[in-house]
Write a protein that binds this DNA or RNA. Structure first.
Lengths: 129, 129
DNA sequence: CTATAATATAAACATACATTTATATTAACG
DNA sequence: CGTTAATATAAATGTATGTTTATATTATAG
């Protein structure tokens, strides 16, 4: 019964585009924090924060080497599992004609006319149906 | 690149124990709203709300039959995909010795000494590492 | 048309949390 | 020891959203 709770925790950890980006960037490799910062183009504190979340939820594991801290996948199956959901997610069809404000904002397109607002970011679904 | 956004939306939809419970209850069947209400033991408005979220994100589809509205999985692969993550989630090991307050509250155990608080519910990970 | 059952919506509330800015820790090296 | 680079933490801020209570819609039957 509390399988639902564990699943909820796992999915919540994965329900963040930045964390997904970090996981994808790390992939099968072993990356230092600064590698990730350079790779995903997020601020260092933000990357540290997300890495911590991913580590606390056992998605990543850590190895220290001198001044560097390397992160890698804790369970290689995660990548396959993400692939499965990526297919399903294709049907969610965000960014369609009726996409909401938060779906395809300027700052995400790299146009940066608007600035990424603070607070949580949630992708709203397409309107119809 | 906006694959991350779609994945985020999908995972966010799945990051709720009640929604997971509803999906699991529906399974491969076709269930009316009142079926679900009876099955998962949540209030009718709450079930309606979650069904709406699941429908808007294309996880469920709807068919009306008289007064009844039947919900069923939009994509049968969802069940397999959930199974994959359930295995991975087993390692998250919520409800361990060092579990946090929100992880195994009384109201979840059915003891109901405390009342389910309003607001969002998030499962915190185990402390160590 | 009216009553009734099934479902959906709205308002109110409380809380979680992603982001930024600033600062602290940690380790190597001189 | 002091400096510097790599990483982590803290405080502040704004927003999203799950739940409840109450009410509205929808469709069928009489």
């Amino acid at each position: 019964m509390r399988e639902s709770m564990r699943l909820q925790a796992l999915f919540h950890t994965l329900s963040d585009a930045n964390r997904l980006g970090i996981l994808k960037f790390i992939g099968t490799q072993s990356r230092s924090v600064s590698d990730v910062v350079a790779g995903v183009k997020l601020s260092q504190p933000l990357v540290s924060h997300h890495l911590k979340v991913l580590r606390e939820h056992k998605l990543l594991k850590t190895r220290r080497e001198g001044v560097f801290v390397f992160y890698e996948l804790n369970d290689p199956r995660i990548l396959e599992a993400l692939g499965v959901f990526a297919e399903i997610a294709a049907e969610v069809q965000c960014c369609g004609k009726t996409a909401r404000m938060f779906c395809c904002p300027d700052w995400f397109q790299g146009l940066a006319k608007t600035k990424r607002p603070a607070g949580r970011l949630v992708v709203k679904p397409v309107q119809g149906e």
